[in-house]
Nucleic acid binder design. Structure first.
Lengths: 172, 172
DNA sequence: TAACTTAGCGAGTGATCACTCACTTTCATG
DNA sequence: CATGAAAGTGAGTGATCACTCGCTAAGTTA
């Protein structure tokens, strides 16, 4: 992977996350990345291919984030780490995740990459003696989803108070 | 309000919700609405004005939805109706709300129109003796937010099981 | 070093974009 | 019925869009 190709990917990610896919022109990407416009199409065939290359990383990035939860075998720790999930995302990855959350609203979006996570949560709640582990897991997943969105839009600090509250609430 | 103007608004709403603002051309709106393209600009000045006219309705529509909750003075009923909120949205309004959820990710989005709702929820939880009413309200609001998104993307039935579960969970 | 592949450039291309404008039709009111 | 305003048209407009192509520069391998 050449430097220029990396530049294109990084700039495109930033612009797609901020201005949307249709709101970002290939000429603007080229200009900000310091490359010729033609190079984008040499490397990625077309604009959709560029988006695809970016989205490709989603699966691995999600896996990196949730792997510590998946291999955890202490139920209480599973719940605790799940609550912590939105807060451990590195700040420099925010544009990437912002784009992912945006893409959820595109018609041809694949989802749901969080399924293994939900299953692990269900397992944890069952172990902890919750009566409806499945629903409990889905609800906590909703909370995590919406908190993540809040963080990506308004910053980590806007949701910080909820972290401690959820620790307390799910620890009883 | 003339019929053609209504047509433009209805078609634009549908297309904006499905294909996004930048993904929808004024010529396509005109064609599907059965009007000349020039009429759009006579009525709404420019494409942004058209979007603005649609978004304008958001405040009133939100108010219609949450008013029954705001005037309720039985705390338990406030919580119950809040949980029910995502499920009482009329199906024909889905495109409208889908667009609203999409617009949350635009940079110049105003939000947060749900503040009075959160305050009422906080009041209800306080009345019910919850120790941290504020956080409790914020968490339930997150749940409702994410469930709503799930309904708009995958249909009401995909979240139906959570409704009863939440009734049960918040009734104890 | 010769031959070949990949990286990179930048001036095009037709299509489509949001928007304008001169014009006609419809409609309300005295 | 006359008149003026509002509604509606559709052929333009320049700008910008995603994308192409002929070319050169840089690396790689025999």
């Amino acid at each position: 992977m050449t430097d220029k190709k990396k530049n294109i990917l990084a700039v495109a990610l930033e612009l797609f996350a901020n201005d949307g896919f249709n709101g970002t022109s290939t000429s603007k990407i080229a200009k900000e990345a310091g490359v010729s416009e033609g190079l984008i199409f040499r490397h990625f065939e077309n604009k959709n291919g560029l988006l695809h290359a970016i989205v490709q990383q989603a699966v691995e990035r999600i896996h990196i984030l949730i792997e510590p939860i998946l291999i955890e075998n202490e139920p209480k720790e599973v719940v605790r780490k799940s609550i912590e999930l939105p807060f451990v995302v590195p700040q420099h990855e925010y544009p990437f995740w912002k784009l992912q959350f945006k893409l959820k609203w595109e018609n041809d979006y694949a989802g749901d990459k969080m399924q293994p996570f939900i299953e692990k949560l269900t397992w944890a709640f069952a172990k902890l003696g919750y009566e409806q582990a499945q629903e409990e897991a889905e609800v906590l997943n909703h909370i995590i989803d919406s908190i993540s969105a809040g963080i990506l839009r308004e910053g980590r600090q806007s949701q910080e108070n909820l972290k401690e509250f959820l620790f307390y609430k799910y620890d009883k």
